[in-house]
Amino acid sequence: MTRALTTIGFDADDTLWQNEQFFRLTEDRFVALLGEHGAAAEISGRLLEAEKRNLGFYGFGIKGFTLSMIETAIDVTRGQVSSAVIGEILAAGREMAAHPVETLPHAAETLAALAGDYRLVLITKGDLFDQERKLAQSGLGDFFDAVEIVSDKTVATYQRLFARHGTGPERALMVGNSLKSDIVPALAAGSWAAHVPHELTWALEHAEEPAGERRFRKLVDLGGLVGLVREIG
Results as ranks from 00 to 15, higher is better:
E71V: 07
N177G: 11
S151N: 13
L200C: 07
S191L: 02
R24P: 00
L16H: 09
F216K: 13
Q137R: 14
W202C: 09
I123H: 10
L228K: 11
W202E: 13
R29V: 00
T157I: 11
E42M: 12
G38S: 02
A203G: 01
E170Y: 05
F65K: 06
E231L: 07
A97Y: 00
K134G: 04
P105C: 02
L104P: 04
F143Q: 15
V85L: 01
S181E: 07
R230M: 03
G224H: 07
F143S: 15
I70L: 10
Q18H: 08
R119P: 00
G227C: 06
A50V: 00
V229P: 00
D117H: 13
Q80N: 11
Y158D: 02
T201L: 15
R3K: 14
T167C: 08
Q131Y: 11
E132N: 13
A98C: 01
K180T: 00
V175D: 08
V150L: 05
L47V: 05
Y118T: 10
S82C: 04
G59E: 05
A40Q: 04
E199A: 15
K153A: 14
A41W: 03
V155T: 13
S82I: 08
E132Q: 15
S44G: 07
R214C: 01
L179W: 06
D145R: 10
E205P: 04
L222G: 14
E109P: 04
L25Y: 00
V155W: 04
F60T: 04
A136Q: 12
D130E: 15
D145Y: 02
G224M: 06
V196K: 10
I86Y: 03
R24N: 02
F60G: 07
D13T: 03
G56D: 05
G190R: 09
I70D: 03
H195L: 14
K153N: 10
L111Q: 01
W192L: 14
G61A: 10
A50M: 04
A98L: 03
V226I: 02
R46Q: 09
A113V: 05
G79D: 00
V76P: 04
E231Q: 15
R53M: 03
L128E: 12
L104W: 01
A12P: 02
G168K: 08
G61Q: 05
S83N: 02
S151D: 13
G224N: 10
E88D: 14
S83P: 00
S151L: 09
T15H: 02
L204W: 12
L179I: 09
W202P: 01
G56C: 04
T6M: 01
A211I: 09
T72M: 08
T167W: 03
S178P: 12
R78A: 06
A115H: 12
T15K: 02
S138M: 11
M1Y: 07
T7Q: 03
F216C: 13
D28A: 08
I183Q: 08
I8M: 05
D14S: 13
A112I: 02
H195K: 13
A97R: 10
A115T: 09
G141R: 15
S178Y: 11
G126C: 08
N177M: 10
I149H: 10
G56I: 06
L179T: 08
F129D: 07
E132A: 14
T167V: 10
N54E: 09
L204G: 07
E209T: 15
L48W: 12
D28K: 01
Y58W: 15
G35V: 01
A4D: 05
L135M: 11
L120F: 09
S178L: 11
A211P: 04
T167Q: 12
T26K: 01
I183G: 13
L5C: 04
E49Y: 02
